[in-house]
């Protein structure tokens, strides 16, 4: 079964849950940035939790369905249509051969996940189908590209209460932060500034990292000996401003880090674009652990 891309949009890539266990080779984890929407789409289609889907950034994406198939679109609030007939996010849509499916530019949030029943059948590299342009692993999706999907015999599908779907329309988002790495080495003034001010996303944000604008910290240490970086870790540059590392970020880095954004708050950051206002709030490890475990349980994630 397959689809043929008509409009690829600015940046559409194949992403699954990520490429785990190879960071010691310098290979980033990659994978769907908005883990919540990605899992939700696969859950609705009753796909395994690591099925490959298409991550569409800023919409303007369409394809021709070459077979009968079930799909589900999640993520940013936007208009989607089948042969110009409006349809809905977060539910199963059945496409017939010859149908044209389209996603318009989203209004506020920025990423959509096009999940397909059975998952995408593309090349596996180091246990994952995720594309990482920076690492030259895979390429972004182009016009006329044919994408194959797995044929599945079961028609088991799920539906969810639409209110369960995450909402990304907030003017101000709060990201919960764990006190990690060099947290205790930052001055009280800098920490107070970090947790009290409202930052905004600068023009530099992508799958690698998100740079923030705001008031500058003043006593930032010069640098640390390069060390392994967790996804979500918050580096403070010598200029005193934060960069939050995303899934395509290099595996090691030498800027001091004031903390790490809780993994389940990353989806909200991943859905944010230029100018989004952000504030930070300290979180306790026990809460993070238990919330993460519940999420893993809900979607059947092994790790």
């Amino acid at each position: 079964m397959s689809i043929k891309i008509i409009k690829p949009g600015i940046l559409s890539t194949i992403q699954d849950r990520g490429r785990y266990g190879h960071m010691h080779h310098g290979i980033s984890v990659s994978g769907a940035l908005d883990e919540y929407s990605y899992q939700l789409g696969n859950f609705i289609l009753n796909n395994p939790c690591d099925s490959a889907s298409i991550e569409v950034t800023y919409g303007d994406f369409s394809f021709l369905s070459l077979d009968v198939m079930h799909i589900c679109v999640t993520g940013a609030e936007t208009e989607i249509s089948i042969n110009n007939q409006p349809n809905h996010l977060n539910k199963v849509i059945t496409l017939n051969q010859g149908d044209i499916f389209e996603i318009k530019c989203p209004k506020k949030a920025i990423r959509n996940y096009v999940c397909i029943k059975g998952g995408i059948n593309s090349a596996i590299f180091y246990n994952s189908r995720s594309c990482n342009v920076r690492e030259a692993i895979g390429k972004k999706i182009t016009k006329d590209q044919v994408i194959k999907t797995f044929r599945v015999d079961n028609d088991n599908l799920n539906s969810i209460d639409p209110s369960l779907a995450p909402k990304y329309e907030n003017d101000l988002i709060t990201l919960r932060v764990l006190p990690t790495y060099q947290f205790h080495e930052f001055s009280d003034n800098d920490k107070a500034l970090f947790f009290s001010q409202v930052y905004s996303i600068s023009k530099d944000f992508d799958r690698t990292g998100v740079r923030l604008n705001g008031g500058k910290m003043t006593d930032v240490m010069k640098g640390v000996i390069s060390e392994g970086s967790a996804v979500g870790s918050i580096e403070i540059t010598p200029k005193g401003l934060p960069i939050i590392l995303m899934r395509d970020a290099p595996t090691i880095g030498g800027y001091p880090k004031i903390g790490t954004v809780f993994s389940l708050d990353i989806p909200y950051l991943a859905q944010s674009g230029y100018g989004q206002r952000i504030r930070f709030e300290l979180m306790k490890y026990v809460e993070a652990e238990s919330e993460r475990r519940s999420f893993n349980d809900l979607f059947g994630i092994e790790a």
Binding site: I225, G228, A303
Partner: peptide, 14 residues
Amino acid sequence: IPSYVSIFISFNLN
């Protein structure tokens, strides 16, 4: 991830 003076570890919370 071993690196210069440290070892970073991520683990299975489950």
